[in-house]
Design a binder for these strands. Structure first.
Lengths: 198, 198
DNA sequence: AATAATATGTATCGACCGATACAGAATTCA
DNA sequence: TGAATTCTGTATCGGTCGATACATATTATT
């Protein structure tokens, strides 16, 4: 028994995420967000709470629609080793096609999160570990199918692949160069017992 | 024919760097810097220019005294492959011993630098490439001494090691875990033809 | 000692920050 | 239709931001 919201919350969170993604938490004002979303500051506060919770909601929305979607889609439609290869390929293509060179919202947030926001840090750490878990599942599944030699430690290789992925995202932000990125990925895949050709 | 400066510029830049390192550019106010250095805002502006140039000077000071010093020291005193191993070991130990979990000032700055600061981005990209050049020199030298097999491409392996290093720095900021870090480094070193034991 | 030049400290500028009070518009339920 | 409830827009709050003007203190040169 009340007036319904006159804007699309999902679209709004996407616009908010893009603003935070490009300029960071401190570098984005609530007025910027209002202009970017086409709403008023009041509506934003009314719908999503204060700036901190708005940031977390936008980050979560980004993760759900981008990262988790990617993991789920690749893991379901491709063979284990192919899923890992495709994952890296998508990250590279995304990094190179973004003219704003925003890198990864999650990684940006990881470095933007100051020590005095422990719950945010914990949430980010959890999401990052989910990526590692994805690598680990693929590696173990690949071992069962015979695509990954049993001499490769899943724990070690998944940590290794995660580090390379995070490193790629830093490169994407500051200097996205295809040759460097593909070289790094190629070496990492070889080390994990995954042949390059897909 | 004038009054000499009554503070140590190097010490001041170190204090400034630590503040920016921990809280980022936008998250550190000029008043924070004044309190942290024990100076007045006026003195800071008088000696170093505005906030932007103060940031760049502090970053440069950090790089000269930490990163470049480390590269120079290791490259001069150790065998090529040992220099790489020692480099990663130092990074891991530093990451784990920092209770503030600040990660790497250079990497933090890389992600903090917005797209509308191209000269800063270029400077950061240049510094990052210097790390890759260090890896490359070590790999090529290691090949000459026979410690690195000639089947390892120096271009590919240096990009790979750089990605792992940057990834480690992200991990250090959000969740510094020794097991994950050492696993990632161990796999990367093996892939580069560098035996783990030092 | 006189003078020129620089450093320092206080006070303050205009702009922007996050956040909210308040009133009016809009919509659902009775 | 009437009333309760929620949303939206304007205006504004106190605080902090980066930056600077100004006066004073301090030092090197003449």
């Amino acid at each position: 028994m009340a007036r319904p919201r006159q804007f699309d919350e999902q679209k709004t969170l996407e616009a908010v995420a893009e603003a935070f993604w490009a300029h960071g938490y401190e570098g984005t004002s609530t007025r910027d967000l209002a202009q970017r979303t086409g709403l008023t500051v009041t509506s934003l506060y009314n719908a999503f709470g204060d700036k901190q919770s708005l940031f977390q909601l936008a980050l979560q929305h980004y993760l759900d629609t981008t990262l988790k979607e990617r993991i789920h889609r690749l893991e379901e439609s491709l063979a284990p080793t192919e899923a890992i290869v495709a994952f890296f390929n998508e990250v590279i293509e995304r990094s190179l096609s973004d003219v704003q060179q925003r890198g990864c919202f999650l990684v940006n947030s990881a470095l933007d999160a100051t020590p005095d926001a422990p719950e945010l840090r914990a949430a980010i750490a959890s999401e990052i570990d989910a990526i590692r878990a994805f690598f680990r599942r693929c590696l173990l599944a690949g071992r069962r199918t015979g695509d990954v030699p049993s001499t490769v430690s899943a724990a070690e290789a998944s940590a290794h692949l995660l580090a390379v992925l995070l490193g790629l995202r830093v490169m994407a932000r500051v200097n996205p160069d295809r040759a460097t990125m593909t070289a790094a990925v190629s070496a990492a895949l070889k080390a994990s017992g995954i042949s390059k050709h897909r």
